[in-house]
Design a protein around this nucleic acid. Structure first.
Lengths: 156, 156
DNA sequence: TCTTGAACCTACAGTCGCTGTAGCTCCCAT
DNA sequence: ATGGGAGCTACAGCGACTGTAGGTTCAAGA
């Protein structure tokens, strides 16, 4: 039993990585994090390895990588001598996706901007916003694909 | 019984609006579309009103409005004499959200671009992609907030 | 030593906006 | 009469969590 190896309870891990406790347990449940050691009272204790692994996951999530891609990237970190072509490919694919999204959102931004700018602030019957949404003809884009879902929280 | 009023089965409604049949039933289940009339054999039949309403929903979804916002917008179309200030507000809020997302994604794009560009295509041990994700210090952004989730489909 | 309260535990439901499946029934054309 | 496509209900699953209920454990202070 060494006294030098650090060991953290789940709350410390959460604070140090900026993830939520539930999220860490969720990652464990889907096999993204290995099952950690437990105290005699059944509480999880983590070492440096786990902390690093979780930090990697968190960072990759902040970059917007989906968990499947992160899983692949983590497998690669376990084989440091392997070629990084796959990691490169994952990253490029992600970049392409990000650019596609930016394009869609920018087209959307233009249309929304026009909508609010031409709104005459009168009644619903005359409202530009409503009329554009009601009538496809009034819409500027010839053909526009649906943008990804965006559930934004209420700004009360 | 008039012979002029059009009436469509659910599949026609789907084709005409570009939504899926299940989606229409889903909208009904959450109260976004009213329950339609039924044939003697229990099949849904829709009139022009419902078609227009669904087209409105579809169009608004294509604009990225969340269903809650669409619900509010639909309520407004039922009160055409009311002020459109609320519709304007919803639209502006959405526009703000879209712009926020664009900003985040653009920051992300820059970082991802740097990552793939500096990748030396060697082993995982030397991989820039992996190392940036492993080590927060190597990351160019001083502080970056997580970007929204983006589950992209496999490009096989 | 006892107590208090924060942190931990499991298990499960809910979020958002659908999508897919199973296992039926119905309708229309041949 | 029959075949097949379209419709029906009910429910599970997606991704990535978040929140809740109801219990246990731990560490610090009295």
């Amino acid at each position: 039993m060494t006294h030098t190896a650090p060991h953290y309870p789940i709350g410390d891990l959460a604070k140090r990585t900026g993830t939520k406790v539930q999220t860490i347990r969720y990652y464990e449940s889907i096999g993204l994090l290995p099952e950690p050691a437990r105290t005699s009272g059944n509480q999880r204790i983590y070492g440096q390895d786990q902390l690093d692994r979780l930090a990697f996951i968190k960072h990759a999530r902040d970059f917007g990588f989906p968990l499947d891609a992160i899983r692949e990237l983590l497998e690669m970190t376990d084989r440091p001598a392997a070629s990084c072509a796959e990691a490169d490919a994952i990253c490029r694919r992600h970049l392409t996706e990000v650019r596609r999204r930016i394009g869609r959102l920018q087209a959307l931004e233009g249309e929304l901007k026009r909508m609010v700018e031409t709104c005459s602030h009168g009644t619903v019957a005359d409202c530009r916003v409503i009329s554009v949404l009601s009538d496809h003809e009034k819409c500027c884009a010839e053909e526009h694909e649906p943008v990804e879902t965006m559930p934004y929280k209420a700004t009360a």
